[in-house]
Simulated assay, not measured.
Amino acid sequence: MLAFLFLLNGCESDQAVVWRTDSVSPGGEYTVHAETVQQSGPGNAWISTTVTLRQLGQKAGVHILDLSHDLLPRPPGSAVDITWAGPRHLVLVWAPGSEVGFQAGKAIEVDIDAMPRRQE
């Protein structure tokens, strides 16, 4: 029984937020939140970034971008650059080597341009 408890404890997941940022739109009507989470463990390690858009006064946000960074040798320092090109125009630029799982083109009346960052 004791061996089983040690084995069960060894299978526990280990997640950590390794990067996060927020950006408020000009005029303050919208907030974008991006967060990169790293999971480690035997056979289930991954790194992913989720970006959400929230309108002022709303509790819940809307997912607008999901990225996987599993092919990168280490977590990206800044997984997504967030720029407001206008009050309702958002530009998202992500780290090279990231794989897009989901990408929205428009959400909550905000136009979204999303593209990979140019490699230098």
Rank of each mutant, 00 (worst) to 15 (best):
Q55S: 08
A79P: 15
W46R: 09
S78D: 10
W46E: 09
R54G: 04
H69K: 05
I64A: 02
V51I: 08
S68D: 10
S48H: 14
R74K: 12
T83H: 15
A79Q: 12
W46T: 14
T49M: 07
L71E: 11
P76H: 05
P76L: 03
V51T: 14
I82K: 00
L56V: 09
K59N: 04
L72R: 12
S68L: 05
I82Q: 00
P76D: 05
H63E: 15
A79H: 11
T83C: 04
I47Q: 01
L71T: 04
L56Q: 15
V62F: 09
S68C: 04
I47G: 01
V62E: 15
D70T: 07
L71C: 03
V51K: 05
W46D: 12
L71W: 05
I64D: 06
R54Y: 07
T83W: 02
D70W: 05
L72A: 04
P76F: 01
K59I: 02
G61Q: 09
A79R: 08
S78I: 03
L71P: 00
K59H: 01
D81T: 11
R54F: 10
Q55L: 03
W46H: 13
G57C: 06
W46Q: 07
L71V: 02
L53T: 07
K59L: 06
V51Y: 06
T49Q: 14
H63P: 11
P75E: 09
I64F: 01
I64C: 11
T52Y: 01
P75D: 01
I47V: 13
V80D: 02
P75C: 03
I47M: 01
S68R: 15
S68T: 09
L67A: 01
